[in-house]
Amino acid sequence: MSVITTDNLTKRFPRVTALDHLTVEVQSGVVGLVGANGAGKSTLIKILLGLSPATEGTARVLGLDVATEGGAIRERVGYMPEHDCLPPDVTATEFVVHMARMSGLPATAARERTADILRHVGLYEERYRPIGTYSTGMKQRVKLAQALVHDPQLVLLDEPTNGLDPVGRDDMLGLIRRVHSEFGISVLVTSHLLGELERTCDHVVVIDGGKLLRSSSTADMTAYTAMLAVEVTERQGEPEFDADAALLARLAEAGLTATVDGGHVVLVELTGDEVYDVIRDAVADLGVGLVRLEQRRHHISEVFAVNPAVEEEVAHV
């Protein structure tokens, strides 16, 4: 089922076109929206929420027209903004209850839903502390809680891992997956960290300069390549020995095509199953340790290869 559809959606400002005839269809599930700063992601979210009118084209969210049914859309959609927008002097419980009431829940239901959702995001024990005393990760969880408290059909999460350390990012990504798997809520999540989208999303939409670059399943974008990634250790007691160069030479002698892909990863063209045996024998003959031998996957960042400036801004953040 489509949760978001746009048809020739265009948004122009006096000196810039933020969205340029964007036509895309987003199915239910966990969908990633990626693009460089200025690509049009935030503008698209504002239009989808009915907060900003489009210049041209149409868009529908959960079957509702964004131009005429913005109020109904916001009743059914949760939104987690990117920037810190939480009042520091109120507790998480007070804030989330308030947001639940703003979404139309009665007082009793709002309190019950708040307790449930704060438990879900891991803040139940800290729910009566002022938000101003929270860490960045806890504040992000409060923003997620208020987006979920009214039991929406769809949530829009704008850079939900912003400012988090690696452990905090993993925890947040796990919560996002559970939003869909346990509650059946569809998710549209924006992120500059493409590795997060590869691990979290079922489908990825890539935009640049307000235009659609690609929309396809994550599995298609990260399909296996015809290359093996090989990583080996240096030879013990011989720090001057270049294991990568020696391995390349051995593989070349065996008639294989291989290169070094930055760092210490040797890429070998996979022409048949016998390639595995050749690599194994070469590693054993050289007396080095085998750290990794796996078939390489494409990365979402390769979508941006046609635009090096965008690739540098997005893929390496």
Rank of each mutant, 00 (worst) to 15 (best):
S301D: 13
D158H: 09
M1R: 11
R199Q: 15
L212M: 09
P130A: 06
M1K: 11
D220V: 06
G209S: 09
R250H: 14
L164H: 09
V16S: 15
A145I: 04
T43G: 02
A254S: 15
L49A: 06
S215V: 00
H298K: 13
A315Y: 10
M227F: 10
P14Y: 10
L51G: 02
R113N: 14
T259L: 04
P152G: 01
H299E: 09
A67E: 13
R169M: 13
T114D: 01
L105Q: 10
E274N: 13
L33E: 08
L64N: 07
R113D: 12
M172L: 12
F183L: 11
G262F: 10
Y224E: 14
P53Q: 14
S181H: 12
L118W: 12
V268N: 11
V283Q: 03
E234I: 01
L188Y: 07
T161E: 03
E269C: 08
A305S: 14
Q27T: 14
E274P: 05
D261A: 15
E196G: 11
S186V: 04
D220N: 04
H299S: 10
R111L: 08
H192C: 02
A109I: 10
G104N: 03
Y224R: 09
G32D: 07
A315G: 15
E269W: 06
D208E: 14
A107F: 12
E302T: 09
E56L: 08
T257C: 02
L247W: 12
L22G: 06
T136M: 09
V90M: 01
T161R: 08
L123E: 11
V314Q: 02
R111I: 07
V34L: 11
R178D: 14
D277I: 03
A282L: 02
G29A: 05
L197M: 15
T43K: 03
H180R: 13
T68M: 04
G38F: 07
T17N: 00
H83E: 15
A59W: 08
Y224A: 14
V167F: 07
L156S: 02
I185Q: 05
